[in-house]
Nucleic acid binder design. Structure first.
Length: 444
RNA sequence: GGCCCGUUCGUCUAUCGGUUAGGACAUCUGGUUUUCAACCAGGCAAGAGGGGUUCGACUCCCCUACGGGCUGCCA
């Protein structure tokens, strides 16, 4: 459905950092733009001046950069206020805006009353029915007007790229407030104006915007614009099905990055989770883009488990060539001459790159030996037979062969206690490769 | 309460009325490795419940239950 160059946008409000839920939206829009040779717009929805902060805007861009989601264009709604007011004038002239005077408290009361009577809490258009004299009286009273969009009360339909055919009766929705009494332009309006002005042709966003879409379609049409295509992806829930937002603190991109999650691992999961395509580590962003199909996503809420990120991260880390990690290894203090051997040994035994430090510490300082009582004499004998350094790749074989000869032990009974005594672990890399890297003679 | 969407192996999902209900991830077993990882082979495991429609329903319809979203002078 998106073969022609598609203009997409990611429109976070800078009131917090990006989290996995946001990321999915950003990534989908990014991939669609790239796949079609289109344009990916980063739009900061910062009309809420009280909650928006530059610090968050910077953080969002840093996070997107980290993931390689580069935008072609960046916009800030706070810089477009004049345009919104101009559009508002147009809608007033077209009689689609009307001024209202109820206070938030009054509206709240009205809703509660409707609910108590078993009626839907839809705005009753009381202010719409005010005549000019009544409005003037309201203003004279010192009331400050705010502005609602007059919905055309028909069914609004669209073919959603994920949900399929959607139909919402405008009569079941309140006329949306688009401009507050203090003049602040609200999201629904700014977003609609922007999407038309910026030529956005395809909007992928969370299912929490489904009802908004209905009203935004009418707003766009009232402005003489053509609504873009829409696709609403399901929202993520926690692994236990609980609402994800309650755990956002542990699921921010910054936190995942701090835990060592690799960008490509994160992208691989987010690009596929909830779709019918298998989740697997992608070789590159381009791979993800090529294989992306928004229509392959399901409408049901999707469980997200951050632990799934680690197998993917491990697979990615283990696939890295030495040059990709040389700086990191150098920073650990590994001598250049040992870097290649160290990486070969360590990479198969780590999940995140930070795990490298444990292996270097072990090789540099030696481990706390793990020796069973019945193996004590054996290990002591073996250690006494270990030739002086330096050790080569062949040392292990020669040494263990000699130990086998001397003690009569073989197989697991021979190798296992030595591994445990030298590394303090039951599992780990090839011992023949480990020996040349050991900086100290193992002690009992 | 109203509106919208949803419910298939543990997880993400395929199936567009007739299938031994398929795949991927996870898990388990075996093989290969001195061990781990990787790799190969194999195994376990699913249609929320109830009514219809139909020769036949996971698939279509209705009801119920459950889950998610919206119902703001937030985004």
């Amino acid at each position: 459905m998106t073969q022609r160059p598609t203009v997409t946008r990611f429109a976070p409000s800078p009131t917090g950092y990006i989290h996995v839920g946001n990321l999915r939206t950003a990534l989908m829009n990014y991939m669609i733009a790239r796949k079609t040779g289109g344009t990916f717009i980063l739009r900061l929805d910062d009309t809420d001046q009280e909650r928006s902060k530059q610090e968050y805007a910077d953080g969002i861009m840093t996070d997107l950069d980290w993931l390689g989601l580069h935008w072609d264009r960046v916009e800030k709604q706070s810089l477009r206020m004049d345009r919104y007011h101009e559009a508002a004038d147009g809608l007033r002239a077209a009689a689609r805006f009307y001024e209202c005077f109820e206070t938030p408290v009054e509206l709240d009361l009205k809703r509660k009353k409707q609910l108590n009577m078993g009626k839907p809490p839809v705005y009753d258009r009381a202010s719409y029915r005010l005549d000019d004299d009544a409005r003037a009286a309201m203003r004279a009273e010192g009331r400050e007007g705010y502005w609602r969009f007059l919905l055309d009360q028909q069914r609004i339909e669209w073919a959603d790229g994920i949900l399929g055919d959607i139909s919402i009766d405008a009569a079941s929705v309140s006329d949306p407030v688009l401009i507050r009494a203090d003049g602040q332009v609200l999201y629904t309006f700014a977003s609609s104006v922007d999407d038309i002005d910026m030529g956005v042709t395809f909007i992928v966003r969370g299912a929490d915007h489904v009802t908004n879409t209905a009203t935004q379609i009418q707003i766009m049409q009232a402005m003489g614009g053509t609504p873009p295509n829409f696709a609403h992806h399901s929202l993520l829930t926690g692994a236990g099905g609980e609402e994800l937002s309650k755990r956002l603190g542990t699921l921010s991109l910054r936190d995942l990055r701090a835990r060592g999650v690799e960008p490509l691992a994160l992208l691989s999961l987010m690009a596929r989770l909830g779709s019918s395509k298998p989740v697997e580590l992608a070789a590159s962003m381009q791979d993800l883009i090529d294989g992306f199909d928004v229509g392959s996503f399901g409408a049901a809420p999707t469980k997200f488990d951050a632990e799934d990120l680690f197998p993917l991260t491990r697979a990615h880390v283990q696939s890295l060539p030495l040059p990709a990690v040389a700086d990191k290894i150098k920073a650990l203090g590994v001598p250049d001459a040992l870097a290649e051997g160290f990486w070969a040994v360590a990479k198969a035994n780590i999940t995140v790159l930070d795990d490298l430090s444990k292996w270097w510490e072990l090789l540099r300082d030696g481990a706390t030996p793990l020796v069973a009582d019945e193996d004590r004499d054996f290990v002591k004998t073996a250690f006494d037979m270990l030739p002086p350094q330096p050790w080569s790749h062949a040392t292990w074989g020669e040494w263990t062969a000699a130990v086998k000869e001397a003690t009569g032990r073989k197989g697991g009974a021979l190798f296992r206690p030595l591994r445990r005594a030298i590394t303090g672990l039951d599992a780990g890399p090839e011992m023949a490769d480990v020996l040349p890297l050991l900086q100290k003679r193992p002690q009992l």
